[in-house]
């Protein structure tokens, strides 16, 4: 029996391109993800009590400030939302142009993006953090606290 290899022309090779294309896209996707993550980290991430204390958490930089919306501080006027962020005994007034989305309310943790101007954070982006606590809605407690999140804080 003749088992010598066939000539090249008689045994055409079919390379499967789809996995190679997908692998290339995966590589590009990975680079995009890492680049976006790193570029989004340009804003200094500061807690309220780190403003003016921690390196970078000052007027020279655009900041992401994390804190809790103080109960009774929320005021919406025209298209502006004003509130006070508190964290670890320190507070910071925030002025946000617009109406924050998500479950924004008093007593929730938020991250406000913006710049410090005259001791006040002028923000153009608000992200609401929610805690890792899950509690059933209770109408009586909501009426007492005035805000759902504050009822959770008060326990």
């Amino acid at each position: 029996m003749d088992l010598t290899p066939r000539p090249e022309s008689q045994a055409p090779k079919r390379r499967r391109w789809m996995p190679i294309i997908i692998l290339s896209l995966v590589g590009v996707g990975g680079v995009v993800i890492v680049t976006q993550f790193l570029s989004s980290a340009i804003d200094y991430y500061c807690n309220v009590d780190e403003i003016g204390v921690r390196s970078g958490c000052d007027t020279a930089n655009r900041l992401r400030v994390q804190g809790t919306v103080e109960q009774g501080s929320l005021a919406k006027l025209n298209n502006t939302t004003n509130f006070t962020l508190v964290f670890n005994g320190k507070s910071l007034d925030v002025k946000y142009s617009g109406d924050p989305g998500g479950v924004f309310q008093e007593c929730v943790s938020v991250v406000a993006h913006g710049r410090l101007v005259n001791g006040k954070l002028e923000s153009n982006r608000i992200e609401v953090k929610h805690s890792n606590e899950y509690e059933a809605k209770n109408k009586d407690r909501l009426e007492k606290s005035g805000s759902a999140a504050c009822s959770q804080v008060q326990g």
């Binding site: 995966v26 996707g29 990975g30 993800i33 890492v34 976006q36 993550f37 570029s39 989004s40 980290a41 924050p100 989305g101 998500g102 479950v103 924004f104 608000i126 992200e127 609401v128 953090k129 929610h130």
Partner: peptide, 22 residues
């Protein structure tokens, strides 16, 4: 979108999860 107010954030958890998927 319903809680944070955003569909996507380049947040550490979301970014690492997307990277894991890729």
């Amino acid at each position: 979108r319903l809680t944070w107010g955003e569909f996507w954030q380049w947040d550490p958890r979301l970014t690492t999860t997307a990277f894991l998927l890729v």
